[in-house]
Design a protein around this nucleic acid. Sequence first.
DNA 1: CGTATATTTCTATAAATCTAGAAACATCGA
DNA 2: TCGATGTTTCTAGATTTATAGAAATATACG
Lengths: 99, 99
Amino acid sequence: MDIVTATQGFSAMGSEPRMEVLQTLVKAGKEGLLVGDIQQRTGIPASTLAHHLKFLASAGLVCADKKGRTITNRANFDHLESLAAFILEECCADMETTT
Amino acid sequence: MDIVTATQGFSAMGSEPRMEVLQTLVKAGKEGLLVGDIQQRTGIPASTLAHHLKFLASAGLVCADKKGRTITNRANFDHLESLAAFILEECCADMETTT
DNA sequence: CGTATATTTCTATAAATCTAGAAACATCGA
DNA sequence: TCGATGTTTCTAGATTTATAGAAATATACG
């Protein structure tokens, strides 16, 4: 994971409504949720929600899967794990003694 | 860790120069670095760096320790770990069957 | 005291983001 | 085909953030 990708991911997580959406999807698990479901659970207006979902998707945190009239959104668990790992990835790298 | 704190943390990580600063401090380990050291390693102008360090500190990601003329900055490793853990904290909570 | 050093605060401009109503678009069912 | 449903795109004003030069502050040293 490079720094640009990581930064985009964290930036996407750096807004309360967006984090709320993401957590709703993380809680929902791999089945995902329809946009309408998310809207119901979060109370975010449709257009605002669409905006945030696009932001989350373009950061790779969420995947959207259109089927008929509805769109299923799912958290991208692999990517989320990588981001979590990135935070302390290079911890203390500069402290290493000449081993 | 509540959602507001987490969001502030991720927001602070959601900018490339700031993430670069944070990583520089994470690499440096618990000894930390002087503002001037960070400036040298990142090439960020002093006033811009001060701005970002304040942002990082107010999000709890970094601690500043003034001593004489210099200020030592350290990554707040505990907080960073909590943030990393937060991302998938409630993973699949809504999928649980009636156990 | 006066000067050099380390860092911040002030300031201003440019750019990005947030929010949400309204309109548009696509798909399904009758 | 027509109306209902689910979701997006358009739009625009308000707010936040980014950047960095210049001035200010604080401490140390001679």
